[in-house]
Design a protein around this nucleic acid. Structure first.
Lengths: 236, 236
DNA sequence: GAGTGGTCTAGACCACCCT
DNA sequence: GGGTGGTCTAGACCACTCG
């Protein structure tokens, strides 16, 4: 475990344990250096992680402060680990509607940067939050990278399987969002009406090596989903 | 200008000028150190900015690679400087529907952390992208922080005014997103039909000092808006 | 095993906030 | 002016990738 990651986690835990609220001042820089017995840049790194994650903010010449304002029950648009980790306090379950290994379409090939010879897994799942319909998700996994997948796995968190069993490491992702009117077919799946509103997301996930491995299209139930995104000034 | 910011900008410019595509390998670490005549950590910082902004990705033991995959015409959910800077190649204009100085409502007071005595500016604008309706935005600015605002300013980019004229520095922001059916009133403003889909965002902007100064509620035209969010693995 | 990126240190100096 | 966070350096050592 890296020192700065470890320290970041300890500080986060400290904030949670003490239930510190927005604006509370944290111990000063030099105290943190002494407390953890590390050099200045290690603390800098730890604090930058926390700042980037929206847990603290730092003001030069003044101090380090708690930032903790999130509403709960919102899907984090900046996390990229699937929302099983995201919506901690909620029960996420899935029903597998389809799982097949197919020759990729033109669109999937261009997103996953693969050829017709490389088969892809096509998984369609209905996902529930606290037993309410959250979204319907259609995913394509490059089978060169994800050589095996079955219904048991798809019923649980596929990402956890990829990380734990296949030892894949997710590097980064791109998400594109559109608001749409539901088609007849999608409305039936989501138990809504045709032309009802919905959020359509297209996501492309890359390994740490820069290779795309998962292209997904998800349609969210507009009454059971909400989203958030935190921003920082750029130069962190 | 900070060295690492400057170097980050130069590298970004280099990528744009050479029109390098996704996956292109950049000069190696030691070359960058020599080229810019700085120490290792300065380069580390510069590269981390670029990684965080989704412009490159780094693979330990392998190299530094270009990441440039964005579709254009999407509103960036992670920027927090208003989208005048965001949608570079598009013409963003605004029509001011309302500008008044009022006693804040309960909701506005709790978001802006102010009292009844502190008046707020209430601005309602219809915003256009390439002369098409993009969104209707209702913003509340704490007048203790933003002491003056008029229609001329609101017709242009309010954020540019805050930064340039008032010398305010935006630190961070929280955004919450919901998909809704349009009300009669909003549908008329957006020239859509009642019950048409829309994205509703609530945003709270903070100064670098941690003080909230702008609470905004925006409703986007579903046919003229689309959004994107890039993610990275956490420990950057 | 050579090459490349990542972490960590110790310490100098700078920039900003507050009183 | 004293305190606090931010930048930068030089260099040691670690961890990963790839041929």
């Amino acid at each position: 475990m890296l020192k700065y990651v470890e320290i970041a986690e300890k500080i986060e835990q400290y904030i949670i344990d003490k239930d510190l609220k927005q604006g509370t001042k944290l111990p000063k820089f030099n105290d943190l250096i002494k407390q953890y017995g590390v050099s200045k840049s290690t603390i800098v790194n730890a604090l930058n992680i926390l700042e980037k994650s929206g847990i603290i903010y730092q003001i030069q010449g003044s101090g380090i402060f708690v930032r903790r304002n999130q509403r709960i029950g919102y899907v984090n648009l900046i996390e990229n680990q699937g929302f099983t980790t995201d919506l901690d306090e909620f029960v996420i379950t899935s029903k597998v509607l389809l799982l097949e290994k197919i020759i990729p379409s033109e669109e999937v090939r261009s997103n996953l940067e693969c050829s017709k010879d490389e088969l892809v897994y096509h998984v369609k799942r209905l996902r529930y939050i606290n037993e309410q319909i959250l979204c319907v998700e259609e995913s394509y996994y490059n089978s060169t990278i994800v050589p095996y997948l079955n219904e048991e796995i798809a019923k649980e968190s596929i990402f956890n399987y990829l990380k734990a069993a296949l030892r894949l490491s997710v590097g980064f992702s791109d998400k594109y969002l559109h608001v749409i009117k539901l088609s007849e077919q999608d409305s039936q799946i989501l138990e809504l009406k045709k032309e009802d509103p919905a959020l359509l997301t297209e996501e492309l996930f890359y390994l740490s090596s820069g290779t795309p491995f998962d292209f997904s299209r998800t349609i969210y139930h507009y009454e059971h989903s909400q989203f958030f995104a935190q921003s920082n000034s750029l130069n962190i």
